Amino acid sequence: MKKILFAAVVLALGFTNASAQYGPRYDYRDGASHERMSDINRLQREVRQNIASGVQWGTLTSREANMLMNRYENIEAKERKFARHGRLSNREERILRNDLHELMADTRRLSHDRDRWARDRRHRGRF
């Protein structure tokens, strides 16, 4: 079951990577805008990697991974909606960045909760 789920997550991440390559084009007239978008892209990559790692290591259940991926896809949809006019405003970038930070925090929290639960069970079994 974990292998199937991991394969599904990897495929989903592959499709999001492909869509990111051909996604919205931003108007980079100023270097600061490009730097902010690089930060958002980095955060997106990090979120996808954290979710995939959680599935691979068994620290996220399939239900948790699906919920997190749905939230990630909603953030990407929001980014596409914001970028329709060609450039993200400071406010839109801040909203996306905050959403991604919240998603990363929730991913870490769910993964760490699972780690703690697994460690506690192993230790209890030994005593």
Rank of each mutant, 00 (worst) to 15 (best):
E35R: 07
E35M: 10
E35W: 10
E35I: 14
R36G: 06
R36S: 11
R36M: 14
R36D: 05
M37F: 09
M37E: 03
S38N: 11
S38R: 08
S38I: 09
D39T: 15
I40A: 04
I40N: 02
N41H: 13
N41A: 14
Q44Y: 04
Q44M: 12
R45Q: 13
E46R: 07
V47G: 00
V47T: 04
R48H: 07
Q49N: 07
Q49W: 10
N50P: 05
N50H: 06
A52G: 04
A52F: 04
S53T: 06
S53G: 07
S53K: 02
S53E: 02
G54Y: 00
V55A: 01
V55M: 01
W57G: 05
G58Q: 01
L60E: 01
T61R: 02
R63Q: 09
E64A: 06
A65F: 00
A65E: 01
L68C: 00
M69L: 07
M69K: 00
M69F: 05
Y72H: 04
Y72P: 02
Y72G: 03
N74A: 12
I75N: 01
E76H: 06
E76V: 14
E76M: 09
K78P: 12
K78S: 15
K78M: 14
E79D: 10
E79M: 13
R80W: 14
F82P: 02
A83H: 03
R84F: 13
R84Y: 07
R84I: 10
R84N: 06
R84V: 11
H85C: 11
H85T: 13
G86M: 08
R87C: 12
R87K: 12
R87F: 14
R87N: 10
R91V: 15
R91S: 10
E92G: 12
